[in-house]
Write a protein that binds this DNA or RNA. Sequence first.
DNA 1: CATTAGTTTCATTTTTTATTGAAATATTAC
DNA 2: GTAATATTTCAATAAAAAATGAAACTAATG
Lengths: 174, 174
Amino acid sequence: MISVHTKIDASPASSEKGKLTPLDIEAIDLFISFLKILGLPKSVGEIYGLLFASPKPLAMDELIEKLHISSGAASQGLKLLRSLGAVKTVYTPGARKDHYTADLELSRFATVFIKEELQPRLENGLERVRRMEALLAELPEAEKQEALERMTRLKHWLEKGNTMLPWILEFLRT
Amino acid sequence: MISVHTKIDASPASSEKGKLTPLDIEAIDLFISFLKILGLPKSVGEIYGLLFASPKPLAMDELIEKLHISSGAASQGLKLLRSLGAVKTVYTPGARKDHYTADLELSRFATVFIKEELQPRLENGLERVRRMEALLAELPEAEKQEALERMTRLKHWLEKGNTMLPWILEFLRT
DNA sequence: CATTAGTTTCATTTTTTATTGAAATATTAC
DNA sequence: GTAATATTTCAATAAAAAATGAAACTAATG
């Protein structure tokens, strides 16, 4: 089933060196949009998107050339993506430069978002609610009831979130 | 059960005009942190937080005074929060100024986030994947297989998200 | 209907965040 | 070793986002 007539394409869909294919562009756009949810800058989305679309690992200077980003942005973006486990360094025998490839475990992004953005805030929120409940004692009776009701609602909602997140993590994992 | 001796408190836990109580501050901090997830600016979190902590509706100038924000920020923040349904205008008989109160349906924020941030991106993403699959045809056979695998993974993940979000919405609703 | 009070708008400023690129550091080749 | 190449760091700059406040607008009062 291996192709027999892999002719050199006249309008190659894949990299004619330093140029993005339409496929690359779609992937980049998509990941810019998704990684933005995590609060990551455009350049990081671009890097991941291009690596995702690339059949083979890319070196830093290829990223720089194709995406027109600075070496600093490339270096920092890769560092960040590696720290998330979203990009891996690939050993390429006899190659001077490091080569990078996208880890395809996409759930990783959602997981990071939940663990780093949502869960800490929920926990912090619950702690804060406890502190607020303590402060309620000092309120005049008239206000206390109403305030208590609000605290209860807030707590309830935070707890709901707190129980839901592990389910989501589990669902994503599988 | 109505309090009989509502003495004028020496160190009032509630507003001695233009000053935030410790309770206010806790609530404000909490909502700044949460609304930031939605990409909302600090001032909006402050406004909602203060309204949430306030037993009675507040006028715009009270917000401005207590939070030390400009009239512009107050006006725009309230407008935005009203558009989300998170803040309501309260009719106060014989009052010149409008008065605002926090809607306590907190799930609203999560709902907005899901409907405005997540769902559109997922749908857009799926559409994009379709476009990418079409582009795959032009790839040389060697790359095609690998690329197809990636597209499949991406699609799978987007679909997974797409089925999960309605569950979450439903869970939040109840 | 004119005066005053309240709110919104929006050009400008401030603050925050992201990017650049040259210099410092690290790595590989010879 | 040291020359050549690759990567990281970080101060400076650019870009994006938020806040300000004066002016325009709107609504209520007498």
